[in-house]
């Protein structure tokens, strides 16, 4: 409870500081906004996510065919890319980020929509899930990296990689060829086989390949997949997580 309160204070302070300029673009979530969002949705999103947001659009099956992941089911499905604890809905900024950046290898980036259009379509997407009408989920505090990567830190990151069981799925060298993956044991919550990210290829980092994005993925987990949230179990052992992040980044080369 105390941690939650702290996080809430942090989040609300952040919201306050950002309030004036966020307001400039983000329209109020009302009927008119959702109506505009619906029109955008029907052109840009429906063909994969379906008319009712079930992730069963006419083009959706081909993304992974008999396997997963399928397009997101907006009605009840879990959201992978969040800054909120496991099992919770994402905050608006999470949705905005996904719409803008797309999902590497799966969904194209919709940065071609204006910011206002993106907020409109997000308002419409949220209307598929009653959960968004409840209290807004509280984002985990996602700090900036404590400092640049160090050799000792990366060495420790390797130890953490094993301790956290990353190799079980992502493989000993991060190629996404861990035992559970090779044995076909990794399923999403719909029972479709999915493959873990290849940590040696930044283009396959679905939630983004920045240090913060990787940190976020480890802390929140990817709901709907076997990737768990580490935020609670490691309880404030931030240094280990950042070492792990830098170790993971050291497995792939920077490309332009």
């Amino acid at each position: 409870m105390r941690i939650h309160a702290l996080v809430a204070i942090g989040a609300s302070l952040l919201m306050l500081s950002g309030a004036s300029f966020v307001h400039a673009v983000k329209p109020e979530d009302n009927q008119a906004t959702r109506e505009k969002g619906k029109q955008i949705y029907e052109h840009a999103c429906l063909l994969c996510h379906g008319v009712d947001g079930r992730g069963d659009g006419p083009a959706g099956w081909f993304l992974s065919r008999y396997e997963g992941p399928r397009p997101r089911d907006f009605r009840g499905g879990s959201y992978k890319f969040r800054s909120t604890p496991s099992g919770e809905l994402p905050i608006d900024q999470d949705l905005f980020r996904t719409v803008t950046q797309g999902i590497s290898g799966h969904m194209p980036p919709y940065s071609g929509l204006s910011e206002e259009e993106r907020w409109q379509v997000i308002a419409y997407i949220k209307s598929f899930n009653q959960g968004f009408k409840g209290p807004v989920s509280i984002a985990l505090l996602l700090p900036n990296p404590p400092g640049p990567p160090s050799a000792a830190g990366i060495d420790n990151g390797r130890t953490v990689y094993i301790k956290y069981g990353c190799q079980n799925c992502h493989g000993d060298n991060g190629y996404g060829d861990g035992k559970e993956a090779l044995d076909g044991n990794l399923k999403d919550t719909y029972g479709h086989t999915i493959s873990p990210g290849d940590l040696t290829e930044r283009a396959s980092f679905k939630g983004g390949s920045s240090a913060q994005a990787i940190y976020r993925g480890i802390m929140t987990g990817l709901d709907g997949t076997p990737m768990p949230s580490y935020a609670d179990t490691i309880g404030g052992n931030d240094k280990d997580v950042w070492d792990l992040v830098y170790y993971i980044l050291s497995l792939s080369q920077e490309r332009q």
């Binding site: 063909l47 994969c48 659009g57 006419p58 083009a59 081909f62 993304l63 992974s64 065919r65 797309g102 590497s104 290898g105 799966h106 969904m107 194209p108 980036p109 283009a203």
Partner: peptide
């Protein structure tokens, strides 16, 4: 678009609705 052929194709070169 940093995405997959199958976003647009049922089976290349045949296009899906998207």
């Amino acid at each position: 678009y940093n995405t997959n052929c199958m976003d647009c194709h049922t089976a290349p070169p045949i296009l899906n609705a998207f």
